[in-house]
Amino acid sequence: MLTVVRRLALAGLAVLVVATLPSRAQTPGRTVILSTTTSTQDAGLLDVLVPIFERRSGYTVKTISVGTGQALALAARGEADVTLAHAPALERKHVEDGKTRNRRLVMCNDFVIVGPEADPAGLKGEKSAVAALKRIAEKGARFVSRGDKSGTHTLELALWKQAGLTPAAPWYIESGQGMGATLGIADDRGAYTITDRATALAFARRVKLRAMVEGDKPLLNIYSVMEVNPANGPRVNAAGGKAFADFMLAPETQAVIRTFGVDKYGQALFVPIGGKTDEDVK
């Protein structure tokens, strides 16, 4: 009988543990859900910025790191309060559709076309990203695409479109994974791919890929913050969303962004562009 009592006590204890869990969740109006891209998370920038915001504002932030496509989709459903994304064309469409509002530029860096040392498509010295993709397609050199509707994937598709090409297997490989995993696959297959600068730096030690094309205008990688329209769904924390967006644009935050990554990579990963417009940075 003793074992029965003990087991019941154990079960009761477990139930108690569970019962206490939800109460630890923050009170609704004080929680901000931020839907964002994986690159800001993988680079570690949000791990630095979010605690500062939480301390100053008293809000608790739930950072949901997904691809830009999904980040915007969550915002459109009212499942997030604020979005930090990097697909300007897609973002402007969301703003026009009334799903998000007050889109403001936060920071930028650039994308790089990387490839194997052997450089089968002969991209070294090429300045134009579009011309580089044309050359890859002509030679049928392997290219790994994210294929996940992320900001990087969106940019890549736009470049193919500009090149007037529809990439296809067998040389075109869709990884369906994050940037890090995609770099690993490209490295393994001796393929080209497009990556954001931050992830390229983070993986410089792991993969042998070299930068092939960089500095071209279309390779600019712009991050913007958008507030979610409260009409998208019930329980959108509009005030909290706005507070976070304002925080990203604040001078002190922009100063943190300016130096972020210098200690680890010897160079800053992002350039703050708060207050500028799409036209300014073009």
């Binding site: 569970v18 869990l21 939800p22 630890r24 969740a25 609704p28 929680t31 859900i33 739930k62 949901i64 459903r77 009212g78 499942e79 769904g233 019930p234 329980r235 959108v236």
Partner: peptide, 20 residues
């Protein structure tokens, strides 16, 4: 558990309780 879902009012998505 989505805010727009049937149990949205609980507001427990993205909490340990949701994982449980």
């Amino acid at each position: 558990l989505w805010r727009s879902g049937p149990f949205g009012a609980w507001e427990i998505l993205y909490t340990p309780a949701a994982i449980v």
